[in-house]
Nucleic acid binder design. Structure first.
Lengths: 199, 199
DNA sequence: GTCTATAAATGGATAGAC
DNA sequence: GTCTATCCATTTATAGAC
């Protein structure tokens, strides 16, 4: 057990410090209203350290984007593994997103509510990202198994997750005063009533 | 009929020219990636003219915002006047929004898909704007008349319009290849199945 | 690796001629 | 009212000491 074995553990607290500060600032004021100097001050590090860990302002945003999207994908994978069928998976997915919104509003704001294409050059758009594809797959599977009515997959995904995503947006904007997770079942049952296969 | 009677008609073509160019640039590249110089070039007017009609870059965005929101409000009023009941009004509303998305994508992008609070200082957020309130009223009225199931009004609005708004977003991002209006009835019938009162 | 001080560039806004 | 040329502040990024 050498000293270098600890390298990964302590690694770079500064890097995480910078990312934390950047996420909070980007989420609250927006990417363009946040100067690299704001991040520097908020993270309580020096200018030089920022450029030691990141190529620049955009690179910080990209690192956040990749990191948070990976976390989100892990969440989707967890939900689909632990639940069977579209109905259960969809509900669990929405509950997880609602809980994440309450626990980590900055993260959800950055992932769901930001216009990444404005600051991450040639980013294909978040809807074609892995976690979003996998959410769509939940509904597509439901169609293949006869659980969900046959329709265009984009339409199906919009019907299934549009209401929940809208609630998250409204909650983050301060319009909805109550915690989201409480309304999961009510929302999902009504959503499901619209898309379930008629038999 | 004096010459000054024509003042309103001709008025200021430059002003409209500037607004048009700004809307297109703001919608395609985003507000912050658009310099006042970009607008000047694109509108083919001089710097001085811009500052003759507007106080600055933000004022242009605010003028657009107010103008487009008023148009949108007129649209909502028209739909509610010409249709009776939540079911018909909701469907007509969504069809109108879908048609608007195809006809004026820049407008819809600017109104629905931009984060105004990042560049319009102390703007209360678009969800508390008149047209959005009136859309919510459509559903609230439905609840009062027993057409729509009783629930929180934000939840009801999200269930009613969340799927449609999501489809618009996906369409504007180039994910949905087909024109939206075609899927109006299919979308609305499934949406309605979820929120209609059980009797 | 971390810091401060500074360079280089961008872009919003203005001055003043016509 | 419209134009060009210019100013000035902000901000990204770097140089070089420690």
């Amino acid at each position: 057990m050498t000293v270098s074995a600890n390298k990964k553990k302590r690694a770079t607290p500064l890097r995480a410090q910078i990312l934390d500060a950047a996420l909070h600032l980007y989420s609250s004021k927006g990417y363009f209203n946040t100067s690299i100097h704001d991040i520097q001050r908020s993270a309580d590090v020096a200018m030089g350290s920022i450029y030691n860990y990141f190529a620049g302002k955009e690179a910080i945003a990209r690192a956040l984007y990749d990191d948070l999207l990976a976390q989100m994908e892990a969440l989707v994978d967890d939900v689909t593994a632990k639940n069977q069928g579209s109905y259960a998976q969809g509900r669990a997915m929405i509950r997880a997103l609602f809980e994440l919104t309450e626990a980590e509003p900055d993260m959800v704001r950055f992932i769901l509510n930001a216009r990444h294409r404005e600051f991450l050059i040639d980013e294909p758009g978040i809807c074609s990202s892995k976690p979003f594809e996998k959410m769509r797959d939940i509904v597509i599977n439901g169609m293949q198994h006869g659980e969900v009515r046959q329709m265009d997959s984009w339409l199906a995904a919009s019907l299934a997750f549009g209401p929940a995503l809208r609630m998250i947006s409204l909650r983050l904007d301060g319009m909805v005063p109550t915690a989201l997770p409480d309304s999961t079942d009510e929302l999902w049952d009504m959503t499901w009533a619209g898309i379930k296969a008629i038999r």
